[in-house]
Design a binder for these strands. Structure first.
Lengths: 341, 341
DNA sequence: CCTCATCATCGAATCGATTCGAAAGGTAAA
DNA sequence: TTTACCTTTCGAATCGATTCGATGATGAGG
């Protein structure tokens, strides 16, 4: 039914192998026949059958992006990853297959063992991620996004979460803030001991305390009620609080809202610095000073490393990207007198 | 290198075809050999080579999800679509290949003509979408999400945008509001004459005016400054405004914020009803009365229809889903006396 | 004029599955 | 005992590409 390489060969008056060599360019072909073949391909709108091609060449030009199901459908930060991955893959001539784990890791195993993909990109890798062990045993090109903690020697990319926390703290310290609160991710995230959440928090609090500032933290899920609890709790724990670090995209607008509800002005009474994707910070009611997560760069780097492995190159086993602080309208020097209220 | 069906056959002491029949179940196999073969498959961790399989059977168990590039990386509404599509596809045993159009529609054409996918799901279909014409000429199973306006006889699913607009208007009318504003999508959306945006607006304004209510509308992009302009503009145009319809996820929190900034209480002074995904409405600082877009149902339906076509079933050519209004905390009866301010 | 490379092309084997037709074995009916 | 039929299994052809070895043509060097 569909157009095959034999049709093209007949139409151009050459053998099937000649058409194949025109396609792959692995043997020299006279300019004349090349032209005839290319004309036939164009005229018949021929595209090689992907399956037939992969069966011999072992490649199929598809990589998998594996999202963990735990994060569920409502995690807003993922779409930029998906977009960046999708466009980066297409730029390198690769197609993108999306996977998520239903029961265990069967989806990953099936696609890899069934040679449906050339490589796998594992998103949101956690400490002791069972997918990492699986992928390590599968011996297929792979890149992890996030920092694993087991020994499978798979290359990974991540951003420097500790640096992000430290940058926030230093920015507030530079502005003279000495009483600071830290709003982190959901309690579940800390219970699971997710690496970046813990590192960012520890770096931020450590930096503050080393500078003899008073500091407290709280986890926070995305619901309005819990955000109010979190903000009120920090205000109670840190008397005269003037600075707030928020590492929780979902809660950020609600935090700003809660502060307004309490009659606290930003940044005159309280300075707020967030850790979140850059456009998210810009889109708040008040453009927010933030440490930008290099989300798109992370995704692009991961795709590049994966493509490199597929092509047999050797790639760095660890790539850490640095986040950068961008000052906007939610931070200002601490009110004179230390505790302004 | 990899385990093939021949390895399994040897290991189980049967022929290759027998293994294949065990796999597909298209011929009867004695319980005894079936067991031996299944044991061998399990022991060798065999998975059939996807490409080799597709070359004969013509199927490969992959569908494509084509996102239009125009919407870019920052459209927050897409992730729920992706999640719903991904899980629905996996539930039906299908893998999901993501596509976006780089230069024209080559990605779609390549994957379809190269038999890399069994069917295509076209997202965010617009009037006069060039992708629709292409897909129509490709004669491959397809489903459109959104309402096309050309003649390619491809089945599509959409939600009833006009009904969504009407539900909002009727809810406010029921509560006694007679002066209402409508905040729509970005100016670019209306310039492109995107069907659902226009239909929803017309239905809302039409319903209001038929009930002799005063109404005005404005487009609005997602930036804080433009939201302020939009809200202020409506307040100026509709003197004594007490109701607001917002069909713009991105702007919604900023609208609420702007109203608060102007000293207008919600819902005491102004009632707000939104059109957006349900969880988005719930997550606002004030849980928002909203017409829920049946995003996940839309995606699931589309996948089901696509899978149906792939299996040779005939499917309805038009499927329209009804959105439903859920009352939360941002709407209340109109202030007594008509124009309360 | 006769080698000997080099270049362009072809034929045939091959990849890993599916699937058709036929063979082997067993059972029931005549 | 023979015939017919059903079940189970196998062998071989097939799908659409890639790729190796071989062949014929062309030109350069002796």
């Amino acid at each position: 039914m569909a157009v095959t390489i034999a049709d093209v060969a007949k139409h151009a008056g050459v053998s099937r192998s000649t058409v194949s060599y025109v396609l792959s360019g692995t043997r020299s072909i006279s300019a004349q026949t090349r032209q005839r073949v290319e004309a036939a391909i164009e005229e018949l709108q021929f595209r090689p059958h992907a399956g037939a091609r992969s069966i011999r060449s072992g490649r199929n030009g598809v990589i998998a992006m594996a999202l963990p199901m735990v994060y569920g459908p409502h995690n807003q930060v993922q779409m930029p990853y998906v977009w960046a991955t999708l466009t980066a893959a297409q730029d390198l001539g690769l197609k993108l297959l999306m996977l998520t784990d239903d029961d265990g890791e069967t989806a990953i195993r099936d696609t890899v063992v069934g040679s449906q993909v050339d490589g796998v990109m594992l998103m949101e890798v956690q400490r002791n991620d069972p997918r990492v062990a699986l992928l390590g045993s599968l011996k297929c090109p792979a890149v992890l996004v996030g920092t694993p903690d087991d020994s499978a020697r798979l290359p990974y990319v991540d951003f420097d979460a500790a640096l992000a926390g430290r940058l926030c703290a230093e920015h507030l310290l530079d502005l003279g803030h000495k009483r600071v609160g830290y709003v982190g991710q959901s309690p579940a995230t800390f219970r699971r001991d997710v690496a970046y959440a813990v590192h960012a928090r520890d770096a931020a609090l450590g930096t503050l305390r080393k500078a003899r500032a008073q500091a407290a933290w709280t986890p926070c899920d995305g619901q309005a009620a819990d955000v109010a609890r979190a903000v009120d709790g920090l205000l109670a724990k840190v008397h005269g609080l003037t600075g707030l670090i928020v590492y929780n995209e979902r809660a950020l607008p609600l935090v700003l809202d809660r502060l307004a509800g309490l009659g606290l002005r930003v940044p005159q009474d309280v300075s707020v610095v967030a850790v979140c994707p850059d456009d998210e910070a810009e889109r708040q009611p008040v453009p927010t000073t933030a440490v930008a997560l290099p989300v798109e760069e992370l995704a692009r780097t991961a795709v590049r490393l994966l493509a490199g492995q597929v092509n047999g190159e050797s790639v760095p086993s660890v790539t850490i990207l640095a986040p950068t602080l961008k000052v906007r309208d939610t931070t200002a020097p601490a009110p004179a007198g230390g505790s302004g209220r």
